[in-house]
Computed example of a mutant assay.
Amino acid sequence: MKCYRCSNTDPAYFYFDQGVYYCRKCIMFSRLDANTKIKPVSLTHKIIQIQPKLKYELTTKQKEVSFKVCQLLKEGNDVFLYACTGAGKTEITLESICYYLSQGKKVGFAISRRQVVLEIRERLQKIFPSLHIVAVTQGYTKDTDGDIIVCTMHQLYRYPYAFDLLIMDEVDAFPYIGNDVLSSIASLSCTGQKLYLSATPDKTLLEKSKVVTLFQRPHGKPLLIPEVIVSPVFIQLFCILYYVKKWKEKQCLIFVPRRKDCIWLHYFLLPFVSNSFIHSQITNKDEIIDQFHQKKFQCLISTTLLERGITIPDVSVIVFSTDHIVYTVSTLIQILGRVGRSFSDPYGKGVLLCQSISPSIKECIHQLKQMNKDVESVMIK
Rank of each mutant, 00 (worst) to 15 (best):
P175F: 04
C98S: 10
L81V: 09
K2Q: 12
K285C: 04
I133C: 13
Q62T: 06
I48Q: 12
V134W: 02
K250E: 05
C151F: 11
C239W: 04
P226S: 10
G192I: 03
S276W: 03
Y157S: 13
L43D: 08
K61E: 14
E75L: 11
I185E: 01
I185L: 03
D374A: 09
H279Q: 02
C190F: 01
G86H: 01
E122C: 11
L131Q: 04
F215Y: 12
E170V: 09
R341D: 07
Y82T: 14
K349I: 03
S187I: 10
R121G: 06
Y242A: 00
F272I: 12
S130G: 01
T328V: 10
P222E: 05
E307P: 12
S66M: 05
R158G: 05
M1P: 13
C239E: 10
K210V: 13
L131C: 02
Y176P: 08
E227R: 07
D180Q: 14
T213A: 09
L101S: 08
G88I: 07
L58A: 06
I289T: 02
Y327D: 14
H324Y: 12
M153G: 01
V375I: 15
L224P: 03
I288S: 06
K126L: 15
C84I: 10
K295W: 01
S183A: 11
H324F: 10
V150C: 15
S198Y: 09
E287D: 11
G86V: 04
I335T: 05
D145M: 09
L156N: 04
G309A: 09
S377C: 08
R31Q: 15
K362I: 11
G309S: 09
C84L: 05
V317P: 02
K37F: 13
I310S: 02
F297P: 09
F174V: 12
F128D: 10
S112C: 08
S7M: 05
V375W: 02
Y21W: 14
K63Y: 05
V233P: 00
I333A: 02
T204W: 02
T137I: 01
V69W: 02
T9V: 09
V351R: 00
L54P: 13
R24A: 00
E363P: 08
F320N: 07
V150A: 14
N275L: 04
I111G: 02
L306G: 04
R31P: 14
E64I: 15
S231T: 12
K248R: 05
T137H: 04
D143V: 15
V228P: 05
D33L: 08
C6D: 07
P160I: 11
K373S: 11
Y161A: 08
P271G: 00
G178K: 12
I127M: 08
D10E: 12
A199R: 04
T191V: 15
Y196H: 07
L241W: 02
T9F: 00
F174H: 12
L165R: 03
I27C: 07
G76F: 08
A162H: 00
R121Y: 00
K362V: 10
V329A: 01
A83F: 01
V378L: 06
S198G: 13
A199F: 07
V315S: 01
K46Q: 13
V107E: 03
F277V: 11
D314P: 11
G108C: 03
E91A: 15
L224V: 07
Q370D: 07
P232K: 01
L265A: 15
I301F: 02
I278E: 03
L197I: 14
S360M: 01
I335E: 01
F343K: 13
I50L: 12
C252I: 05
T200L: 06
S198L: 14
Y56D: 07
Q370F: 03
